[in-house]
Amino acid sequence: MREPEADSTPQSALIERVRAGELAAVARLLTELERLSPAAPQLLAEIAPFLGRAQVVGFTGPPGAGKSTLVNAYIKALRAEGKTVGVLAVDPSSPVSGGALLGDRIRMNDHTDDDGVFIRSLASRGHVGGLTPAAVRMIDAFDAAGKDVIILETVGAGQSEIDVAEVADIRIVLNAPGLGDDIQAMKSGILDIADILVVNKADLDGAEKTFRHLLSAVHLSSIKADTPVMKTVATTGEGVVELAQQVLGIAASRSETPKTRRRNRARRLLAWAAADMIERRVSKRPDAGIDAVCDDILSGRMTPDEAAIELLKSS
């Protein structure tokens, strides 16, 4: 809840600095929201009035496809149009140590003296579900800071990364030649969320083959049939302006309001949170109630659907 004297709290002071474009304040807000600090609830309340302006563009694809380099080039194209950019670059954490090497910035080095670009690396930390809400809150932080475009870069390697990718308004899925069997290299599920498919490193041998593979995937799979397939060479910038135009075109063709976009993200969060909750409930052992429901399913007294409805009601 917002307190009557909200304007004088440290939280509101921070948000004021964020709104004024102070980099340190944006950095701070990102951290507070990522880690869901004690200050986070009020911070979220403070930024609520400013949200919904930004366009969230997701880049995902297998390791080695050149995501960071393409993002670097895409940022350049956006800056040429005068748009401000926030980047959230997600890298996987080591499942063993919990640590992470966050190296995406190595290839986004062209923008460190440009105040119109803010890049933050984020470790996936192996959170089941936890990564996605954190990423969504951080997107809101960039939104509150007035970024026109927020880029979300993820490795299309695991379900949690695909979940994160899904919260973008426009999702670009890229691949490159030479990454093994092209389509198989891309996790199933990752193609399905694509609004645009990109063959990066299009100057390499085999790019044409990858391009044709993606085209046929569009025709054969559950991907929308009108999904564009484009070619880029991120290192030279070839095809990147066209990609930016394509993103704009898709955005223009969508009728959803900013509110709807944010609501869509919330909808995804809700679905995952609910699924997590049910999962935790069902896998808890021992649980006599769940055992009884399972026996009912086994004996045919209830269908699994009916049992699930009962479970949802009682949760």
């Binding site: 980099l23 701070r28 919990g98 640590g99 966050l102 910035r105 190595i106 460190t112 933050r120």
Partner: peptide, 24 residues
């Protein structure tokens, strides 16, 4: 168990400051 942000070599002083700031 740490989160490590890596860079290319030859960072300018101003770049290091910016990275430290953005990455908190």
């Amino acid at each position: 168990g740490m989160e490590v942000i890596e860079t290319a070599p030859w960072q300018e002083i101003s770049q290091v400051v910016r990275l430290a700031l953005e990455e908190d």
